[in-house]
Design a protein around this nucleic acid. Structure first.
Lengths: 245, 245
DNA sequence: GGGTAAAGGTACGCCACTCACACCTTCGGG
DNA sequence: CCCGAAGGTGTGAGTGGCGTACCTTTACCC
């Protein structure tokens, strides 16, 4: 097992550029549905200011996202940059799982468990403040039940998990949640989704929301754990032999 | 509550440089004790290769760490770069908590809960493989009981939590664990630590390790949760009014 | 005692990225 | 019909990271 602490310390250092970070940020937000189709982004000059980057760099990112079908730009007065009507769901739908998929899914699991824990705590600490957020979660569950195709289902699924992070009130967790969800979508898109599985999954969603609502941390954690374990096992079944690094 | 998902998406983009990332990586490893005092780092040329960065950039980082008292360099054959005998525990012990301390401590809690969950699962899945790791955790607990001063206690504490992450076998979690621990140390260093509290804390450690050993996920999560809630409350008591952003 | 190898220390030029700034183009509304 | 708000374009400076070659120190070995 190569998880020794010193090995980890000496593992490669990555330094993403501003351009890459921006594409990642906006791209995941769009793919995960946090920025919904047709939505208008702030004007470039404003957005650059909000993101604390120069307009030049922002435009590089916007151009890249436009070329990859995430965004559509319209010139002239009343124009702007809009999220495409049918943005790509996953960044790279080429065959084969990335070889570190085990790590990714495990990190995501750890993250979700922790988030669910904090969300349940927040709901227990201030039920009134959490109520609207929880109602929003319920709406997503309804949307999932009504979903006629997998894309719609998955979008609501993502919204639910991101909404859970919102309950914690921690901005950083919300950001990470969208990233994890977008990453998870890319993996999940490659496995079959029989309706029976989706129905079962949604039953777990209901249980999760109920647990959060009554502030039952243990139940929330348990439910999330089982919920994600299913995904992990299905992926493991699809993995070519063992794909560990 | 400023944790709305779209707000998070449009929050500032940060792009750390390779230099900064490297200082962060090595600095946290040293401060958290993962790289222990007196330890020799790989030769610059080798280390640069391992970290996948140029030697020039690596040297910038090493120089900065040497100036801040983390490292000591010795020239000549048989020389090398060594971790200082008494490296600084915290990066910036200036007065006052950083204003986003609530976020930090919350993110850390979420992380630890998730990690404990995965660690307990790993132990349950393959008890024999996890046994040596768990024995190492017990050693840290013994070290904490024997600790005569807070520094020694804290180092063992960090080692315990990092060791927990190692049990999961996920390199990324180990890396994040050292970062969270180093960050936590900076906060914890500012609060008083009566021996009674430390003893109580260690009792929780024992319970945590026991829960992990028998693969009891629920108990592990519950224990970690309580364990960290204590820290959070003490910090909240020290916070100047409300330090929210 | 001198050579040699292994380590850190120094210098320099190239390239990619980021930024600020100025300007052009489109197009709806007053 | 013109103005203003939006995206689109171009340029030059500054900075950071990289590669490469070379220098200096020092322990060990013959």
């Amino acid at each position: 097992m190569a998880a020794d602490a010193t090995d980890a310390v000496f593992s490669p250092v990555v330094a993403p550029t501003t351009f890459e970070e921006t594409v990642e940020r906006l791209g995941t937000a769009i793919r995960s549905g946090v920025l919904s189709p047709g939505r208008r982004l702030p004007a470039e000059r404003d957005l650059a200011e909000q993101l604390r980057i120069s307009r030049s760099t922002l435009r590089q990112a916007l151009t890249a996202l436009a070329e990859s079908g995430h965004l559509v730009a319209q010139r002239g007065r009343g124009g702007g940059t809009f999220v495409a009507e049918r943005p790509p769901l996953a960044a790279d739908p080429e065959g084969g799982l990335p070889d570190d998929w085990r790590e990714r899914i495990a990190v995501r699991r750890a993250f979700e468990v922790g988030t669910a824990c904090l969300a349940a705590e927040a709901a227990a600490a201030d039920p009134d403040a959490a109520a609207p957020g929880i109602a929003a979660l319920r709406e997503q569950i309804v949307a999932m039940e009504a979903a006629a195709e997998f894309d719609a289902y998955r979008r609501a699924d993502v919204a639910l998990h991101v909404g859970l992070a919102e309950l914690t009130g921690i901005r950083r967790l919300v950001l990470q949640a969208t990233e994890h969800q977008a990453a998870a979508t890319e993996l999940i898109a490659r496995i079959p989704h029989p309706w029976a599985v989706l129905a079962h999954s949604n039953a777990e969603h209901r249980r999760l929301v109920a647990a959060v609502e009554r502030g039952d941390v243990a139940a929330a954690v348990r439910t999330v754990r089982r919920h994600l374990a299913g995904t992990q096992h299905v992926l493991a079944g699809l993995a070519p032999g063992r794909a560990g690094t």
